[in-house]
Nucleic acid binder design. Sequence first.
DNA 1: CGAGTGATTGACTGCGTTCAACCGACGTGG
DNA 2: CCACGTCGGTTGAACGCAGTCAATCACTCG
Lengths: 174, 174
Amino acid sequence: MIFWEDEVAHFYHQIQSGTVRVYNINDEGREFTQGIFSDGNSFGEPPLFSQDTYAASAIAMTDAVIYKLNIEGFQRLLKEYPEVQHGFNVLFAKRLYDKACMAREIINSPESRILAFLKKTKHAATKEEGLFRIPYTRQEIANSTGLRVETVIRTLKRMVKENKVEVKGHKLFY
Amino acid sequence: MIFWEDEVAHFYHQIQSGTVRVYNINDEGREFTQGIFSDGNSFGEPPLFSQDTYAASAIAMTDAVIYKLNIEGFQRLLKEYPEVQHGFNVLFAKRLYDKACMAREIINSPESRILAFLKKTKHAATKEEGLFRIPYTRQEIANSTGLRVETVIRTLKRMVKENKVEVKGHKLFY
DNA sequence: CGAGTGATTGACTGCGTTCAACCGACGTGG
DNA sequence: CCACGTCGGTTGAACGCAGTCAATCACTCG
């Protein structure tokens, strides 16, 4: 665990190597994935600006090396380098865009929600034979879309039949 | 209409007076409200930073006076006033926090989703006799939570019975 | 080969949606 | 002053889709 929901933020985190999942868990043990971050990404920065507590928890999914910078150092950095400041504006703007795209899917079908997730995710995926290999499990797609594994599986199956995605040996391509 | 989903952003918008709804509409005509903004608020700024198109449309819900600053002027402003730049960082951080709080509710019950909306919304509401008067219609709560009006009404009714909210003459208090 | 993890399937259930009315408050115009 | 139109709120009945539960399959790795 890297930090917990509702905790006060003391550090800026940036991944050197490894993968980190930022997520919520409710009373019934059901999980929702807010985001997955890997090499080079930072995560959990908003509270460093807004004085909110963390809206979610963070956990390393793999062995990982993560740089931590305390909040004072982080604020000094922002002050001294306006271009870093601007960089966070751009980063946050992109995040808000992604969140808005996912949020609006709440009123759409499982297929539409999965497609929105694949679309958002594909630029992070590696390309193989003109298609993007989706590096996530069905469970992870379910956690990210708010659906159930079974629903994801059944929906993907229909989508394969309709040539909207491809599956080769359980591996998903888009 | 102030701007449309998928359009390129040319202006920074700030409300002098009036109320603006930023929303999506799907093929079946169902609407999802991304946010409601009023006096003093700005809206639709992320694409000015991230070069994305608008993720949603904006419409004035009331007569309104809105300042518009073209993107070149906006960028000059940011460059010349680092504290404005920082102001947007804080604003975006708060927005991300709110979006994360709403997003995680996707795995929760209607009651929980409505409560999350009320909680987020209450600091914008006016206080009356120790309670916050929620200035939104049931339809607007439905649009903001991804539920249906009927579900909102029935859930609120149960919540009244359990003393989680109050209703006086159709008006909702929290 | 066996254990473990992720994927898959089928049967059943229930909750939120859908549909179709009706209610109630308010404002306007004759 | 009342009739009427409008808009938001409310209710009941029926439906259907995603969720739930339980079992099995498939692949990987030690």
